[in-house]
Design a protein around this nucleic acid. Structure first.
Length: 826
RNA sequence: GCGGAUAUGGUGAAAUUGGUAGACACGCCAGACUUAGGAUCUGGUGCCGCAAGGCAUAAGAGUUCGAGUCUCUUUAUCCGCACCA
């Protein structure tokens, strides 16, 4: 604490007040810089494993260090959890609150293509800028744990983990139709396609067949849903995850394919349905145009040319065209019929692009009476519509609700649930079907034909196939290349690094070639929270001791935009590490919350093109970090969108200045009335409770109420002001430290203990309660807190207003709720 | 279409979970003061009305002694997902 002592030589606040008398202006610029330096010199926020203390791991999403610098949205999340971290620290917990940088990504690479500046160079500069900005806001991060994902010492472990995936059969290479962005020249995960457009550049996404590395996230689909029960995520986040995974229960049923006369062919067609109970209403079947049977049976089609044409057209269509065009098209496969296994009926078979190749089996049985899409298709093609569930008006639209089964053989009279069970049972018994669960979630496309990412540590040997780079050779460093542009045949810029490409097979030693694709952005952020536990370890991604001590994350906050992608990927990744025994719990985050976006004052998203961007540097410079932080907490409910307002910001500045000015009225010998004591304890209780409940905006308003109380006093007793500073310390750390020092304290307020409020002392002795007649407010009375019902009632009846209105009426009933209300019913 | 929200003064919002609607701020109005600062301080400010009083939580119904809060219906806005059989 040498630094503090040097700064503060005095021991009592009377002396201090004398000394600071001349300074009535709140000079946040010097004050904030001074305390940032002291806290850094003192390593006030450094944490280590301490088994004597209970740990608390607070996490915020680390930023992508863009060239634009920090956005005012970042501090909303960072300040909120900084408040939580600081409070927990003052409550005696060992708090880990780290920060790092998610440094691989497209913008740096695109910038490199434009300017020729190596991504490593621009990224480094951006990280420096971000670090400066974050430090200027006074967050209590343990900066010793800072790292970034493009550092080989970090991505070494990302690569190592990829190899573990591969060893466990969860990473595989597959040729498949992927979403291809013709502008970025890169394959995209489903998650990166927004309305058929590239999430980054907005270009229309097309389908392209490419060999891609895949991670088998679908193997974890069930657990990713089920384990949500174990964690405390806000409902919004949980339901988004469940929705995205899209679990549905149904059945796979086999249909024999026949010729026109019912003579069976060699092939069978398997369909997936969630409504096996409606099978007696199936009047035709549909396969996706890409279905393998379509090619296999091509010779049999009487209208082969027409079929071929349709298949080719479908292949040409972009994902967007295919999904936005809801008008039903299709072609019947003439010469082929499907036999309904339940009743032997021969059904026509169509191909249509409303059936998707990647979901279920790529083939369906169509029940137009009870599925609106089938209904629409049947209307276009004039196909029969057979109702098998009672209800609705089938002449108008499909009936998709529950009902009593009719025309359904052995299922007649059953409701949906009974019939589902019966149908599946029947199919299993006769060996042509089984219950089946399907997911919307697809495996994770893990290759990017790009430069600025982690090289995938795999080697292709003509004799031995794909082999991982030996683990002792990691990190596999990203080589320099002359040209960052991906080429048109869809190969990564790494394909240009001819020397780097050539290698030997780790297995047979023969000539081999490296994988040229890199990993997607999401890779590095899928496990970064583990690295914070032990960031400088060069033997393991983190030591067992560190992981056992620090994991799980108690509270993770981030943007709503990351609840589908990042959250799902990192949960999956963590579960895999759990299965391998590296981490001891199946879920990484105990609690997940999301903050609302901050919009510009015009209600629009902040963007360069609109010119409505607020730069955090300007706010820090003009109002100070404390005002900035406090304003972001006061701006509105934490989980909802908020609009930036310079006027409100100024109001918070006034509050901060008032706290500073109150110092002039602090006296050691001032007396505290019951009323003062009550105000203090009420504030302690409110602020603590509201921080825990993420109601930061109302926590600030109770601080304001307390300050208004202090401002009304002639002399402020020192303990009352000290309490204010402690409660304020998580929000406005610089101001709190400054005033704390001016009161004569030799140590930092960060290290102080959080005050404890006494509910008994916070309670009012007299309560004011409303008096209603027939539920309408007629006045208020003030009675002692512990007044009996009878006392309260008699006081209420004496009210002028009440007495007047009661006259001539019969009082039927008087309801007295002590401490709340009196209601007189006449 | 499906899923999730949200709706309260001129504005951002509170409301101890069914008990005095509008805390705390912004803005505005009036006044005071000054070394003119990003000032500060005092008072006022939901709407109608001189007042007594009446009306007010998107709209409508219901439950209740009592509803911003619970139930049903409707509307609007925002965010996801979207031909997932």
């Amino acid at each position: 604490m040498a630094g503090i002592a040097r700064y503060n030589g005095k021991n009592n606040w009377e002396e201090w007040r004398e000394e600071w008398k001349g300074e009535d202006r709140y000079n946040f610029r010097t004050i904030e810089k001074k305390w940032q330096k002291i806290c850094e010199d003192e390593k006030a926020y450094k944490v280590d494993i301490d088994h004597q203390k209970e740990k608390f791991y607070v996490l915020v999403e680390f930023p992508y260090p863009s060239g634009a610098g920090l956005h005012v949205g970042h501090p909303r999340s960072y300040t909120a959890l900084d408040v939580v971290a600081r409070k927990k620290r003052m409550q005696g917990l060992n708090v880990l609150y780290p920060m790092g940088f998610d440094a691989f990504g497209l913008p740096a690479e695109n910038y490199a293509i434009k300017t020729g500046v190596h991504p490593a160079v621009s990224t480094k500069a951006n990280i420096e800028n971000f670090t400066r900005q974050l430090k200027s806001l006074g967050f209590s991060f343990d900066w010793d744990r800072c790292f970034n994902t493009c550092d080989p010492e970090y991505y070494k472990w990302t690569q190592w983990m990829f190899i573990q995936f591969w060893k466990h059969g969860l990473a595989y290479k597959d040729k498949m139709a992927i979403n291809w962005c013709p502008s970025c020249k890169v394959g995209l995960a489903n998650e990166e396609v927004v309305n058929g457009h590239c999430e980054r550049c907005g270009a229309e996404v097309v389908r392209k067949n490419k060999e891609q590395w895949m991670l088998a996230i679908t193997k974890y689909a069930d657990r990713l849903i089920d384990d949500l029960q174990k964690v405390d995520f806000i409902d919004r986040v949980k339901s988004t995850q469940v929705n995205w995974i899209g679990r549905s229960e149904g059945a796979e049923l086999e249909f024999e394919l026949c010729d026109e006369n019912g003579q069976p062919l060699a092939q069978k067609m398997v369909v997936y349905t969630t409504r096996p109970d409606t099978i007696f209403g199936a009047t035709y079947c549909v396969m996706a145009p890409e279905h393998e049977l379509v090619a296999q049976l091509a010779d049999r089609f009487e209208n082969a040319a027409e079929v071929k044409q349709y298949v080719e057209n479908a292949a040409k269509k972009s994902e967007l065209q295919r999904t936005s065009d809801t008008a039903k098209t299709g072609v019947e496969l003439k010469g082929v019929k499907a036999k309904n296994p339940f009743n032997g009926q021969l059904l026509p078979v169509f191909i249509s692009d409303y059936v998707l190749t990647g979901y279920g089996t790529g083939a369906i049985m169509a029940v137009p009476a009870h599925d609106q899409r089938d209904y629409d298709f049947a209307k276009v093609f004039g196909l029969p519509i057979v109702q098998v569930l009672d209800g609705g008006d089938i002449s108008q639209q499909a009936w998709e609700e529950d009902g009593v089964h009719i025309n359904s053989g052995f299922m007649d009279g059953m409701d949906k649930k009974q019939a589902m069970t019966a149908a599946i049972h029947y199919a299993e018994e006769h060996g042509f079907g089984r219950a089946k669960v399907n997911f919307k979630l697809r495996d994770w496309v893990f290759s990017r034909q790009r430069y600025w990412g982690e090289p995938i540590p795999m080697v292709y040997c003509p004799h031995c196939g794909w082999q991982p780079v030996p683990e002792d050779q990691l990190p596999l460093r990203l080589p320099d290349v002359p040209d960052y542009r991906p080429n048109d045949n869809g190969e990564s810029p790494l394909a240009n690094a001819t020397e780097w490409l050539k290698t030997t097979c780790p297995k047979c030693g023969g000539e081999a070639r490296r994988e040229t694709d890199v990993m997607p952005n999401w890779a590095g952020s899928s496990w970064y929270f583990l690295r914070y536990c032990d960031p400088h370890n060069d033997k393991e991604f983190a030591s067992q001791e560190a992981l056992d001590y620090w994991m799980n994350v108690e509270w993770y906050n981030g943007g709503m935009e990351h609840t589908t992608l990042h959250l799902l990927y990192s949960r999956f990744w963590h579960k895999f590490l759990y299965d391998c025994g590296y981490v001891s719990q199946p879920e990484p985050y105990q609690k997940r919350t999301s903050h609302g976006m901050i919009l510009a004052s015009d209600g629009e998203k902040m963007s360069k093109s609109r010119g409505n961007v607020v730069n955090p540097d300007d706010i820090v410079d003009n109002y100070g970090a404390d005002t900035f932080r406090l304003y972001e907490m006061f701006i509105g409910p934490f989980d909802q969108v908020a609009m930036w307002s310079e006027e409100s910001l100024n109001g918070v500045y006034r509050f901060v200045s008032r706290v500073y000015a109150l110092f002039q009225k602090v006296y050691a010998d001032a007396v505290m009335s019951d009323d003062d004591l009550r105000a203090m304890h009420k504030c302690i209780l409110d602020v603590g409770e509201r921080i825990d409940q993420m109601k930061f905006n109302t926590a600030v308003s109770s601080l304001m109420t307390y300050v208004n109380h202090l401002a009304g006093m002639e002399k402020i007793p020192a303990p009352m002001y000290e309490t204010l500073l402690k409660l304020l310390a998580p929000f406005t750390p610089h101001l709190a430290e400054e005033m704390w020092a001016r009161l004569g304290h030799q140590s930092l307020i960060v290290a102080e203990t959080w005050p404890i409020g006494d509910p008994a002392l916070a309670e009012e002795q007299m309560v004011t309660l409303g008096v209603q007649m027939n539920g309408k407010m007629r006045g208020t009375i003030t009675v002692a807190k512990n007044a009996t019902k009878e006392e309260t009632q008699s006081v209420a009846l004496q009210l002028d207003n009440v007495a007047r209105q009661i006259e001539g009426k019969e009082v039927k009933k008087i309801i007295v709720v002590p401490g709340r209300i009196v209601n007189i019913v006449v």
